[in-house]
């Protein structure tokens, strides 16, 4: 197995006026290619910050992040943008679709930004993903015409359109009812089974149970790691962290 994500002694400090807040206090972890990893922790533990830095949305204060052999902390704004469009896909809790673009346009957007592919190929890839996600019949609809579950599937399609090495999901089921949430997790699991590496932040044990292994974070530190699968055990571990 090859290590896709390599994080070493990662630190992130926020300074607002005289108030200093250490969100990450030296985290080190690896995610192998093809893995489905979850990050769990209480609100404010630093799990989203870790995800954002891993995806090149934020820069660490110290430490290093290497994704697919690329060191992120030395990159410029533009290089990070190019990295994001090529190497990672994001799925957010609140979907973050663009309201006045229809489903197809939302999904194709990262591919069109990336360029290097014909429109036909992009169109074909988009149709394939929409088909896989069961929303092919919604292609010409606008986000506000879809249910939450459908919107999240669109977000997943958008995240995968450029066939990224890493899919980052931040509470992907947090804004969904349980049935929709389960569907989304199943979809993520299916893509993972086909080789897609996934790093997911969640505070739901049922979601984390889908992952191959789970990192537990508390107060900006990696405090534990366990395999996925056993929802009860995960919930217990999470409770123990409080």
């Amino acid at each position: 197995m090859t290590t896709l994500v390599e994080i070493r002694d990662l630190r992130k400090t926020y300074q607002t006026g005289s108030v200093r807040f250490e969100a990450l206090r030296g985290i080190s972890l690896d995610v192998e290619e093809g893995d489905f990893a979850a990050i769990m922790g209480q609100s404010g533990s630093g799990k989203s910050t870790l995800l954002h830095i891993t995806g090149g949305l934020d820069q660490p204060t110290a430490g290093s992040v290497r994704v697919g052999g690329t060191m992120l902390q030395a990159m410029s704004e533009r290089e990070l943008a190019l990295f994001r469009r090529a190497q990672v896909g994001f799925v957010f809790q609140f979907f973050n679709l663009i309201e006045n673009l229809n489903v197809r346009a939302n999904v194709e957007l990262p591919a069109l930004l990336k360029g290097g592919q014909s429109r036909r190929d992009i169109h074909r890839r988009c149709s394939f993903l929409l088909e896989r996600l069961g929303i092919a019949d919604q292609a010409n609809k606008y986000p506000w015409e879809l249910s939450g579950g459908q919107q999240q599937r669109v977000a997943i399609a958008r995240a995968l359109i450029n066939q990224p090495a890493l899919l980052l999901a931040d509470e992907p089921t947090g804004n969904l009812d349980s049935a929709s949430g389960e569907e989304v997790l199943n979809i993520l699991r299916q893509f993972n089974q086909q080789g897609q590496t996934i790093l997911m932040v969640t505070h739901a044990a049922s979601a984390a149970a889908q992952a191959d292994y789970i990192f537990f974070i508390r107060d900006g530190l990696l405090v534990d790691q366990m395999p996925g699968g056993d929802e009860k055990a995960i919930a217990q571990r999470l409770a123990d962290l409080r």
Binding site: A81, R84, R85, L109
Partner: peptide
């Protein structure tokens, strides 16, 4: 800002 945030997330560069 939110839309810009999303666009930057999916890879739009500052000049774009």
């Amino acid at each position: 800002l939110r839309v810009v945030g999303i666009l930057k997330t999916v890879g739009m560069t500052p000049w774009q």
